[in-house]
Every structure is written in C-alpha cells, then in structure tokens.
Design a protein around this nucleic acid. Structure first.
Lengths: 362, 362
DNA sequence: CAAATCTGCTTAAACGTTTAACTAAATTTA
DNA sequence: TAAATTTAGTTAAACGTTTAAGCAGATTTG
C-alpha cells in the first residue's frame, strides 16, 4: 500500500504543478525536482544519465519531464558549461549549388553530434564578412567554418577568431597564411585535367578566363593552366589569360574580348560555371559552333551546366565530401580545446565531367 | 595633480588587468568594474547608456571596455532577459534564388535591429522540418519565420511553436489554418496574368503542369488556371491539368505525357521554373518550336530562365519584398509579446516577365 | 567487525548579465 | 533652511543549468 499511496501523492503533486504551469511559463529542472521531492541537481544528473543516480529516479525524472513538457533551457546550460553548441558558417552566398550542398552536409554531420549551425552570407563583400564574424563571435559560437569572400585580402578579422581560441575551419576559399584547417579540392590538378582533356580533343589555342589571383583557389587554377599549357607546348599568351570577377556579365564581357582577338582561341576554360554560361551565350549570339569552333569548359558543376544546350563540361568539386570533412575536422578540433591550431590541409581530387560543350568526338 | 595621479592609477590597474587577462580567458563586466572601482551593475548600465550613469563614467567604461577587448556574453544576457535575439528560419532549401533572396532580406532587416538568424533547411521533408522546429525551439529563438516543405500536411509541429508563445511568421508556402502572419504573392492572380498573356498570344489550348494541390500556393495557381481558362471559354480538360512534384525530372516526364496526347496543347504553363526547364528540354528534343508550336511559361524567375534559349517567360515573386515584410512582421509581433496570434495576410502582386518562350509577336 | 568503498543523493557555488529596490549625496524648491 | 527631488550610483537577487564537494547509509573487504 505504500507504493500505492506514493503514486497517489505523485499524481496529486503533478496535477498541482500542471495547473501552476499553465499560468506561468516554462517547465524548469526545479519544477521536476519539486514534483519528485528531490534536488534540482539530481534531476539534472538524471537527465544526463549520470551513473550516480538510480535507475528508478532516472525513470521517474524522465516521465515527469515528459508530462510537464520540459524543454531544457539551452542558454542556461550553454552559459554554465561555457559552450553554446552552435557552429557559425560563413559562405559567400547560399544560392549556389556548391555552397548549399556543403552547408547541408555540414549541418547533417554536426546535428548528429548535438550542434546547431548558424549560416551567414558575405555576398562576396569583405565588410559583410567582418560583420558576420562579429555577429558569430557575439553569439558565442563554439567554432566557425568559413569560405572567404572574393574581396577578402586583409585577414585580421579571421585572426580575431583564432585569438579567441575557437576552432576555425576554412573550405574552398582559404588562406595558408592563417595556419588553420583547410578542406578543398586540388585546383591546380583540376586545371591540368581540363587542359589535358582539351588537348585530347585536338585544341591548340586554349584561353583561360580566371578569377582574381589574390584568391588562392583561382590563383591555383591559373597556375595549373600555365603549367599545363607549357607542358603541352601550347601558346601561352597574355591575351589568352584573363583575370575577372567571374559573374555571368563578366563571362560575357571577357568572351567578347576573346572573340575580338585577331587570333581567336579554339577553346576557353572558364574558372566558374556562371561565367562560362555568360561566355556560352556570347558564342551563340555570334553563331559560333560549340565545341566545333570553340570548345568550352566551366568549373563547379552547377546544375544548369547539365541542362543548357550544349551542356557544359565542368569540374565536380565534391561538395558533399568537403562539407562532411569540414564538419568532422571541427569535431576533431573541439575535442582538444586548448590545442594550438596548425595548418592542416585536406584536399580532395576533383572530377572532370565531360559534356557536349567540349566533346568533339561525340 | 589629483587628476594626474588618478590617471596614473588607472593605467596601473589597467596594465595589471591586461596581464591577468592574457592568462585567463575573456573580459567580463566585472573586470571593467574592478579596473574602475565601480560596481558591475554600473558598468552594465553604462554600456547600455542608462540615464542614471554620468557621462564621465560612461566614457570611462567604454574606453576600458575597448582596451580590454570586452565582448558581451550573449548567453548570459539572453538568459537573464529571457530572450535570445535569435530568429529561426526554416526554408525548403537555400539553393533556389527565391529562398536565398528572401533569406538575405530577412537577415538584412533583422540584423539592423540586433537580431541574428539561424537558417535551417527542410529539403522538402516533413521529418526534417519537424526536427528543425525542435532544434530552433531548443535554441531558444525569439521567433520563427518559415516556408513549409512540400510534404507537410500535419501542422502539429507548427502548433507547437504557437503554443510556446513565440511569433511564427509564414511566407510563400503557408497555411491559413494556423492563424498566423503570412506573407506571399497572389498566386491566383498570377495564373490569371499568365493565361491572359497566352490568350493574347493566340494560344487556344493551354495545359498546366501544377504542384501538389495540398500545398496552398500550388492549389491557388491551379484554381487561377481553371477560372481563367473558363473565363476565356477555352477547353478545360483533365488531360491538360497535371499534378506533379515540380522537379526537373518531373517537368520532363509530364511534358512527354502532354506530347503523347492526341490533341496536343499549344501552350504549357508550368508552376515552377525548374520543371519548366525540364519541359523545355523535352520540347527541344522533339524539335518542337518554342513558342511557335508550343508556348511555355514558368514560375519563380530563377536566374537561368533569362539565360537559357529560348529564355523562359515567368513570374517574378518579389522575393526581396517578401523577405523584408516577413522580417518587419516579426518585429511588429515581438513588440507585444503576450498578444494572441491572428491571421494576417500580406499579399504582394506578382509581375509577369515576358520572354522568348511565349512571345510569338517578337 | 572496524575500515574502506560504494551508492545515491544534497548543498552550494558558479556561469555573466540585468534589474528592481535601495541609498547617500547633491541640488532644487517652497 | 527644511523638505522634496534629482543624480549617480550600489546591493543583491535572479535567469536555469551544471558540477565540485560533501555526506549519510548500505555494502564490501581484510
């Protein structure tokens, strides 16, 4: 009968509390403690499956927690433990397939480990990037995973992250100078693969519309282009190597520039798909056959590259793997909080996807 | 000389603290208070420009704060004030131009008011959407702005947000049944505009590849289609009205289906741009002239619609305005926390962008 | 069978801010 | 010039958790 009367008592206390709670706000650990006549500390431990709490108490705590619709206060726990379980993300933009896929995979991996992510966009602007960093630090994130804006040259703001002692992981657009983890693809080799392929298709005069060389990945693509051109004893001329911002409009403009040359190229390798699309439009407008007259290769495997006609040959950047690896690298870093960050590169080999825009052999 | 010696003292205390801080972690309000020999409360008030703190003290606090590189602990302040200054976003995906633009504009408006946003993606999955809601509630967001997944029919999880008493604002994909704020465009009218335009181009047999009708916006587009067709005394036939998931593949499939008809349509209105692109591919493959043989209209004004050839006529959804308005609506709601949420629709008129795929008059 | 160990809790402090309530001194008002 | 008000702070509690330290009582060990 003792058990029976205990149960009755519990029910009474419970209903009393439920009434009270409808008037007030949220259930806290204290409420559960009061219902069960134990200390809040015991409740906290029970909820975390601490070994020093009996199974009976654990079970009781959990059922009461459910009954009272208890939701842990994330802020309080984060404050006490000194970590927020939030990871900040900074990407140039989210409406590119590459970045959104990276983000999705980072999210997937981190969610499983109890982390949530805050996504911010820099829109390729240095100023916005800086304010994003401030925002994330202010929000007490446990780490930051970032891909730099095109504009970014000054790295003081990223140093700020490092100096706070929270992990910083860079992907795609990164800087060795920062001495932090980096995840990306081999841009240098990718250029080689592209040139190799174009040579294989019989192209003899290959132009490159590249990105700004102060951004390492674009510089690496340019270096790969130069070395591969030299390797094959093809003409390496200033007029064939163009630096640009790689927007669609820029792709159009630079393509017009190439078409205006006395000695036109028979292939153009554009360092980003959107710019390649702009270039393709211009080629069509000039009724130049692609790939017969001029072959075209892009970079990034944006979905539309498979959809336009002719479909565009491009490089698959393994966004999913990059995202996963960036997340895993972060998880590795938070394991040993005090540790000094060191340069640690993880490089995936890219994959060339040959499509109609460069496939002369059909 | 008193001032002089005070300054000297301050400097001493400051340097002492700076030394200490290099060893320990972050500057807190207490550190600043110690340096200046005032109470932490005074520091807090000074930093918030409380009128009961002298200008002199305010200035002193602010300079010391800067010197010590003070960053307010967002968690502590959020815990104390009972709000996190975080707003949760749930979108089906971020790699569509519409959603990323909405997100960007929400961010812009809210950042100015001191809010940060947490973006989550549902990937059109109901399960993921539910877990996103849990995540956001767990993170103690001050409000949620969401666009529903295609799959979502059961609204219990959204009711959960409401029952927590935090503002919920829906945009684009919403449900009247929830009785919350909604921001979107007039889908019904948009269909009318499209049919009007096609009729104007001389089309007489217009098909519609629509979305799932349980999603209100797609249902509204279908209803608009039906009413407009009737209004113009055009044939309204089952075989011309197709329900689909509106992916590219689905667009291809349904277009094939339409082409297999004995009595083919002379125009197709597809309720999403990606599906319209799939349809366009199929038309090209069948060497059907667009718009001469069959005119095509999409929905959403994705960037590629202007870039493919023929460029695709589509509907501009005013993503920027929708984002801004959603954010402003949230800000309005948090002003009066206890207030019951009510149905409050803000509807923008959409804009038809006529391009080559439907322009027979050239 | 006394000492050591284990079990299952409790106590109390801490995380860094904010804020209601108080106070002492300075200033204004009647 | 005494009373009232203003100024510029201080004090202490609170937000909801977590956790180190402590402590009875039960069990094991030598």
């Amino acid at each position: 009968m003792i058990i029976r009367s205990n149960t009755v008592n519990l029910l009474k206390r419970l209903s009393k509390y439920i009434k009270k709670l409808t008037k007030t706000k949220k259930t806290t650990i204290k409420d559960i403690a009061n219902v069960l006549n134990i200390s809040p500390a015991a409740v906290s431990k029970a909820l975390h499956d601490d070994s020093r709490i009996s199974d009976k108490t654990k079970a009781a705590v959990k059922t009461v927690a459910k009954k009272l619709n208890y939701q842990p206060n994330h802020l309080a726990s984060a404050l006490r433990r000194g970590k927020s379980n939030l990871v900040g993300l900074i990407v140039p933009r989210t409406n590119s397939n590459f970045f959104s896929s990276v983000v999705q995979n980072i999210e997937e991996v981190l969610n499983k480990k109890g982390y949530n992510i805050i996504i911010t966009q820099s829109n390729e602007s240095f100023t916005k990037e800086c304010s994003n960093i401030d925002t994330l630090l202010f929000t007490q994130v446990d780490g930051i995973i970032a891909s730099m804006a095109n504009e970014t040259i000054d790295l003081d703001y990223f140093e700020k992250i490092k100096s706070k002692g929270i992990p910083l992981i860079l992907f795609d657009r990164g800087e060795n100078d920062l001495n932090v983890d980096y995840v990306g693809i081999n841009d240098y080799d990718s250029s080689h693969m592209i040139i190799e392929h174009l040579v294989d298709q019989g192209c003899k005069r290959i132009a490159h519309i590249g990105g700004y060389r102060h951004t390492r990945i674009f510089n690496n693509r340019v270096k790969g282009y130069i070395d591969a051109i030299n390797k094959h004893n093809l003409p390496l001329e200033d007029e064939l190597l163009i630096e640009s911002s790689l927007t669609i409009e820029d792709g159009r403009e630079k393509m017009e520039q190439l078409l205006a040359l006395e000695n036109r190229p028979d292939a153009v390798y554009v360092a980003a798909d959107y710019a390649a699309l702009g270039a393709l439009q211009v080629l069509e407008e000039h009724q130049i056959r692609v790939p017969q007259d001029i072959a075209l290769v892009g970079f990034g495997n944006e979905p539309f590259t498979a959809l336009v006609s002719p479909s565009i040959t491009t490089i698959n950047q393994h966004s999913a793997e990059i995202g996963k690896q960036a997340a895993l690298t972060f998880l590795e870093r938070v394991k040993t909080p005090g540790a000094k960050q060191t340069l640690n590169k993880i490089i995936f080999e890219a994959e060339l996807i040959v499509r109609d825009s460069s496939n002369k052999k059909g």
